[in-house]
Design a protein around this nucleic acid. Sequence first.
DNA 1: GACTTTTGTTCGTATATCGCACAACATGGC
DNA 2: GCCATGTTGTGCGATATACGAACAAAAGTC
Lengths: 251, 251
Amino acid sequence: MRETDFVSGFARGLTVIEAFGEAQPRLSIAEASKRTGLDRATVRRSLLTLSELGYADYDGKFFTLTPKILRLGHAYLSATPLPAIVQPYLDQLSEKAGQSASASVLDGTEVVYVARASQRRVMSINLVPGSRLPAYCASMGRVLLAALPEAQAREILSRTELKANTPRTKTDPEELVAELRKVREQGYAVIDQELELGLCSIAVPLMNARGQVVAALNIGAPAAHVAAAELAERYLPLLKETQAALRPLVQ
Amino acid sequence: MRETDFVSGFARGLTVIEAFGEAQPRLSIAEASKRTGLDRATVRRSLLTLSELGYADYDGKFFTLTPKILRLGHAYLSATPLPAIVQPYLDQLSEKAGQSASASVLDGTEVVYVARASQRRVMSINLVPGSRLPAYCASMGRVLLAALPEAQAREILSRTELKANTPRTKTDPEELVAELRKVREQGYAVIDQELELGLCSIAVPLMNARGQVVAALNIGAPAAHVAAAELAERYLPLLKETQAALRPLVQ
DNA sequence: GACTTTTGTTCGTATATCGCACAACATGGC
DNA sequence: GCCATGTTGTGCGATATACGAACAAAAGTC
C-alpha cells in the first residue's frame, strides 16, 4: 500500500472514538487529546465532526457518544450471521446451567464477545456484546488460542501484556503454551480466578461442519458457587450439547 | 461550527463503514462506491485505511469488516451502563414470558436495540444489540415517540418514510399522532403485525427515578401464538414488574 | 485579586487528500 | 481473437486538512 492510500484523518477519528470507554463516557477535548496522543486541535475537529454527524453530543464542554455509533458495529454484527444464530442457544444454555453463557471470537490479543445470555448474579465485570477481555487469561481466549498453530499463538502471547490480574493468573509464556496444548487435547479450557478473584469459567470451541474453529462458547460462574474443579463435571455436557447443535448451523 | 472544523475524510470513512450491512457483508471498491455515492478513489483509500488498521480484511477483491470494528460500538455500550443493567432483567422477563424481550432507545427516526434476550422461535427478523427498526411501526418506537413533546414527535414522523410494510401498517401521520396520544395515556403500546405479518409486540417505557423516559422495553410474539388483543392481558403485568424493578437502577 | 495552570480556539503554512482523467486489467459475448 | 463492458490502480493539479504556535478564556491556587 502506498502512503497516499492511507487517510490519516479517518484513522485519527477512529482513534478518537476508541478513546471513549468504560471509565470515560464523557470526554473534554483536552482529555481526548491526552488519551489519543493527538493534538488538541485535531481531536477537536474529529469530535466536532462526530457531533455534526450525530455520532456524538456536545454540551459545550463534554462530548458523549450517541447510540448512532452502534451503526458502525451493527454493520459487522448484521453482516455476520454468527451472533443471531448463537443467541437463542446461549439463552437456553444459560437457563439450563443457571449461569451466564457467552460466545466470542478472537481479535488480536483479545476475545470479543459477540453474543451473551447473562444471569441476574452480580459480577464486577459487565459484559455485553462488543466487550473485550485479554485472551491469555480468559477461558474462551485459551480455547481460541489453542485452535491456532502454536507459532501463531506464541506470537500473540508475545504481543500481550501478561499481567497478573490475581495471584492465580498464569503469566509465563511457556506455562501458557503448555496449557494451550492441554486445552487442545482435552477439548475445553477451565479458568480458575485468573481474570478476577471469585470468577471461574469453562469454554469449548465452536466448530463449523468442516471442523474449523469459528468461535468459542463458555459458561462463567462465581467461584463461591461452583468450584473450578467441578466446572467440567457440571457444565461440560451442556456445553458439548450446544457445541454439537450449533456445528451444522454455522458458516 | 466553521467549515474547517469538519474533517470530511473522517465523515466519508464512517459512511463507508455503514455501507456494510445485512445484505452486504463483502463489498468491492466499486460496490462500496455505488452504495455511498463517493468516488471510487476515495472509497478505496478509506477501505485500505480500515484494512491497514485491522478493522477490515482485504483479499485483493473484496473487503469484509473484522470484529475489531465492534470496538467502536463498544465505546458506547460500555460507557452507557444501561445495556448491562437491563440485560439480566430482560433474560428473566423473556424466560417468564416464553417470548423474546428487548430494550431500545431512539436514534433519529429509528429505534436501536441496546439489549435483547431472544427465544428459540424462528423469526424472519434477526435482531441483535445495534439492530434498528423504524420507530413509527415498532412498539418500542411508539412508546419512545409518545414520550416526546408532540411537536418533536411530529417532526420525526415528517422525516420518516412512512412505508406500509404490511396491510395493517399505520402510515397516516395524523392517525399515528392520535395513536401516540393513546399510548401516552395508557402507558404502553401494542403493535399488531404492522412491521411484519405474523409479528405482534407490546412495549412500555423505561423511566428513571426522576420520571424521564430513558428507553423502552418490549416483548415480541408470533401472532399465531398470541393474538394482539391478548398481549396486554398476558404480558403487561410482567413488563410493568420489570419496569418498576429497573426504575431505581437506571440513570 | 494577581498569579499559575489548564483548556479551548484561531491562524498561517506546509503537507496530505480529493476527484478527475486515464491506464491497466479482467470478464463475457460473439 | 476482438470488442464491449465493467472493474481496479495511478498521476496530477486544485483543494482541504493537520500541525504548531500564539492567543483567549476559564479554572485553580495562594
